[in-house]
Nucleic acid binder design. Structure first.
Length: 566
RNA sequence: CGGGGUGUAGCGCAGUCUGGUAGCGCACCAGUUUUGGGUACUGGUGGUCGGAGGUUCAAAUCCUCUCGCCCCGACCA
């Protein structure tokens, strides 16, 4: 490809509305343009990257026995009514009517469509397992799209769905997808972790997210430094700490005028946050509970909801707090608290002594508190978010904090959709049974952004070779010198003939502009052809992201490039 | 949805407080110059100042309403 024929409008200035690195570089590098919030044009360079990613996905999924289909983007409400999600899905589901007044939506996901497809034509256990996937544009009307391609409303996703005869077979399908995902992300050149994830309201027993490690990631994850354990902090279970025996401190009520948050009280009393017990008043359906969490820890509402057997828990309204504690928000404590259904405490609170708790009265706290000596807990459980420094629940190691970008998710669905939509088959004994499903997503456009978050420097993008828009870029530095132009032209032809994807910067730009743009666009290999070196038959070769400059004879350029590409 | 910000040329911005009929840099076009890290100079193209209404002799500027976009949070799985 010749640069003069490539629509890659690069910018010197950062676009104002781009904050995160991948967003800035994709816009500046001429890869994407915004059409509306969370909706982007993909320009030629971006499309080349997306096709590389899609190619890797196709190869690995086809190898794993999946088959590609392409399902409609616009879906009728009927199948969503059947699965029950027409009512369940909120405004994130983009709904619309056709000219006859029929209800439709833009597909945010395709469980309904795929189940409808499979249930029509697959009737026998002999036809299973079957695994169908597609690569397609999804639309979710996100409350707040952000960070460019990272969380768009319209985005490209690969979604796959497996159908099996029973749990064991479905688990095998899951395992196969899990390992294919590992190969896909490795081939994309990403540093990632598969982490155990929350199975959420869908239920089911297994779920893993594939997280690309990057400081800008939206998700908080912990990973053991010793064994392979890794999990979303929402999911990470924590081992029960050993209870400490013996109390110190004497119970004492202290005045704490106008200080209510842990930080404020901690400063006021000059005691560390670990010495505090937070008392959170929560609402679970119609019940109100008090939840005790150590001051430096954070409640995990998902764990609490599971423990209480409800779909969700929320912090109680101010009025409720006042009613059950007799004090405004900020002074709740477990001592003398009897207006709640139960007092539940995180394991870390067990055996705490010389602690600080709220006094259930305005401007008042207790110090020197001993758990079980000064108040009763109804039950203890693992209720908090994991964090760096915690003990690994699987081995003797320690957990470390990471931020991650979720680029893939594998999910054991079970029979939720197949039962709701009667996607059944006849087993060997002629009995009708629901198929057991799994679903598997990859954020294709998000991978492009995640790869940049992980691979860039001050000058621009540094693409992993496997997903770079081109392998090599040629920079003729003086377009007015025939020798330079001719040498570049013959290198261009030679590389193309050798099957290399090459971008020739044949613009009549100065050398500086070409270098800058080449670095911004981030093609892995760069060959600079200048009159100075050419007098000695030499060009300069450089690998993007490395400082070393190699002087190469013209004749060996193609070999060098092929060697670099392996 | 709550909080904060912002909308002026393709991009980045000034002008708004204190009303007087729109400007700078980049990009783009023509030319001179330069020629290995975004060259310098000259001339030029391009804007209903997000939109609607109002106040005024006069509105980018003041008032009211409205829309878009960005950030934080809540929400969502």
């Amino acid at each position: 490809m010749r640069m003069t024929r490539l629509h890659a409008p690069t910018l010197k200035d950062d676009p104002k509305d781009a904050e995160v690195i991948s967003h800035r570089l994709l816009v500046r590098g001429g890869y994407i343009r915004k059409l509306s919030a969370g909706i982007y044009d993909y320009l030629p360079l971006a499309l080349r990257v997306l096709r590389k990613i899609q190619g890797i996905i196709r190869e690995e999924l086809d190898d794993a026995g999946a088959q590609e289909v392409l399902l409609p983007a616009v879906q009728p409400s009927e199948i969503w009514e059947e699965s029950g999600r027409w009512a369940l899905y909120g405004p994130e589901l983009m709904r619309m009517k056709d000219r006859k007044g029929g209800d439709f939506c833009l597909g945010p996901t395709h469980e309904e469509v795929i189940v409808d497809l499979v249930r029509r034509d697959v009737r026998s256990w002999r036809a299973l397992p079957i695994n169908l996937y597609q690569i397609q544009t999804k639309f979710r009307d996100e409350i707040r799209p952000r960070a460019g391609l990272m969380r768009g409303r319209e985005f490209i996703m690969k979604d796959a769905y497996s159908f099996d005869i029973d749990d064991a077979a479905a688990n095998a399908s899951y395992d196969e997808m899990f390992s294919a995902y590992g190969r896909i992300f490795s081939r994309c050149g990403l540093d990632f972790r598969p982490v155990e994830a929350d199975t959420g309201a869908i239920g089911g027993s297994r779920s893993h997210e594939f997280q690309v490690l990057a400081d800008s990631g939206e998700d908080a994850i912990v990973s053991c430094t010793n064994c392979g354990y890794a999990a979303n902090i929402e999911q990470a279970e924590l081992s029960k700490p050993e209870a400490v025996v013996g109390f110190t401190g004497t119970l004492e009520r202290v005045e704490t005028p106008k200080v209510r948050t842990i930080d404020e009280v901690s400063q006021f009393l000059t005691k560390p946050a670990q010495a505090f017990i937070k008392t959170l008043i929560v609402q679970a359906d119609s019940d109100v509970h008090a939840v005790l969490i150590r001051g430096d820890h954070e409640l995990n509402p998902i764990k609490l909801a599971k423990l209480l057997g409800v779909s969700e828990v929320v912090l109680a309204e101010d009025d409720t707090v006042k009613r059950v504690t007799g004090a405004p928000v900020g002074f709740a404590g477990p001592i003398g608290l009897d207006g709640v259904s139960s007092i539940i405490a995180d394991y870390a609170v067990q055996g705490m002594s010389d602690a600080v708790v709220g006094g259930n009265a305005i401007d008042s706290h207790f110090t020197g508190v001993g758990e079980s000596r000064d108040f009763e807990v109804d039950r203890f459980a693992d209720l908090r978010m994991a964090m760096g420094g915690d003990d690994c629940p699987r081995c003797a190691g320690t957990l470390q904090d990471y931020r991650g970008i979720e680029v893939g998710h594998v999910f054991f669905l079970g029979t939720k959709y197949s039962e709701a939509m009667r996607c059944n088959y006849l087993d060997e004994s002629g009995r009708e049974r629901p198929m057991v499903m799994g679903c598997y997503g990859i954020g294709v456009s998000r991978i492009m952004a995640a790869a940049i978050e992980q691979n860039h420097d001050d000058s621009g993008i540094i693409w992993p070779t496997a997903i770079a828009p081109f392998h090599v870029t040629l920079l003729p530095l003086q377009m007015n010198k025939d020798a330079v132009v001719d040498a570049a032209q013959s290198l261009y032809q030679g590389l193309k003939d050798a099957g290399v994807e090459v971008l020739l910067d044949d613009r009549k730009e100065r050398a500086g502009s070409k270098f800058k743009d080449a670095e911004l666009i981030g093609i892995p290999l760069r060959i600079a052809i200048g009159s100075r070196g050419l007098d000695n038959g030499i060009v300069e070769a450089k690998v993007r992201g490395h400082d070393a400059v190699h002087e190469l004879p013209l004749a060996s350029v193609t070999d060098w490039v092929l060697e670099q590409l392996n």
